[in-house]
Design a protein around this nucleic acid. Structure first.
Lengths: 225, 225
DNA sequence: ATAATGTTACGACTATCATCGAAATATGAA
DNA sequence: TTCATATTTCGATGATAGTCGTAACATTAT
């Protein structure tokens, strides 16, 4: 009966918390499988699959079937633009979230954000790398300096997934700290290395990352400002 | 459990058809009352009032109470940006709407768009006024020229609601024609005058505007290109 | 004061849909 | 093949919330 584009249909698709979380995860630019999205959204794979189908039908994501996996990625930059606008509005509305951040103290301290380190320790590492000139910000882009590359090679033992075409360094807004932490291939590799070194481990069925006493010491030695 | 701004809450607010229609109407920039929004959204005043309250609580609109009316307007340009992005995506998705315009032929011919004339005849009138220099477009604004003002005075018999501070002329996107028609105080006055002259009448319980044979003739005499 | 109109509050009904358990299907690994 | 993993289908359940009728409240008009 009304005229105008069907904006409600699309908004309703984004309006479900689970789907919104899935889309936010896809905002990073990568392609994720249904089970990965399920973990991120905190639902079972079945529901995630259903959501994925609805999002695809609504034209918000594209699906690439590859082997027994079904990867999902944002359908177009316009979708990202909508999400970006929504994030801006949500942040400006003060409606950052009912709880201004993860409520658990452990979650606020150190947690996993999809695949990299977030929380107080995440922002601390990010700030330290930036202060030392290992990371360089240039117009919305984040680059690794010469010294930064050397540091990463030494710490990681190798280059992080050199074959991937996902960005090496990316800023990711930390909503408990309201500041940035490091995402991208380097962010993922850094966290993986810390776990491999025994500095920290993931807590079962939670996003909490628990550092050992020794791990905390080493971390502070490396990233104290 | 998740981090990030609460984008789902806001999207869910826009996700309801009634609320989406209300917001789209407010996109014009004006302030509308609850009953006006109810008519536009096709719901009863009670539900419109409830929706208005939820939109205000969600920070999408601001309310100004004035006498026994409660005017609603978009809270910020950021809200408009979100709606704009959604419209762009919806249009690009081909999801213009299940039906690309009002399905009824009569609706496509001439209908009421809130308070002014829309449809083929609406765009025809708009184009004619523009072609003759009665209306002048200057950077997104729409103004009435000297000749246009004279024409309006003659046709209307008086100036349209000179006391109001709403814009006199405004462009309104016509989604069955995908072109502009005339809104604003002048658009409202023009339609009211045509009805007063007996050229046309509203069809009960519909948005259709039915022109008489003589009314159609007069209309074509005035606004043929 | 009385009536008329705009708005809001309450209560109830209803439909939509998100969610999950169980099971089926598809693909890859051994 | 047989087993394991990823994904999808089906059915059922449960909760959210959109809707309206009735009525109260607020404000303006007569």
């Amino acid at each position: 009966m009304k005229d105008g584009p069907d904006i409600a249909r699309i908004a309703a698709l984004i309006g479900d918390p689970a789907r919104a979380n899935m889309l936010m995860a896809l905002m990073e630019g990568g392609a994720l499988t249904a089970t990965e999205l399920a973990q991120i959204a905190g639902v079972t794979p079945q529901t995630a699959s259903a959501h994925q189908a609805r999002l695809a039908e609504g034209g918000l994501i594209r699906q690439r079937k590859q082997g027994r996996h079904r990867y999902a990625e944002l359908a177009s930059p316009q979708v990202a633009a909508v999400l970006q606008a929504l994030m801006g509005l949500a942040a400006a509305s003060g409606h950052l979230r009912q709880r201004p951040g993860p409520r658990d103290a452990d979650l606020r301290r150190a947690r996993i954000c999809y695949d990299h380190l977030a929380g107080e320790m995440g922002t601390q590492m990010f700030d330290a790398l930036l202060a030392r000139g290992h990371l360089i910000r240039r117009d919305e882009e984040l680059d690794l300096s010469e010294e930064g590359a050397a540091f990463a090679r030494e710490f990681l033992g190798s280059d992080p997934e050199p074959q991937s075409r996902a960005p090496l360094c990316r800023e990711c807004l930390d909503w408990s700290e309201r500041r940035s932490h490091l995402a991208g291939r380097l962010g993922r590799a850094m966290l993986a290395r810390m776990i491999a070194l025994g500095w920290a481990r993931r807590v079962e069925d939670s996003r909490v990352i628990c550092f050992t006493g020794e791990g905390e010491r080493q971390f502070q030695a490396l990233f104290s400002s």
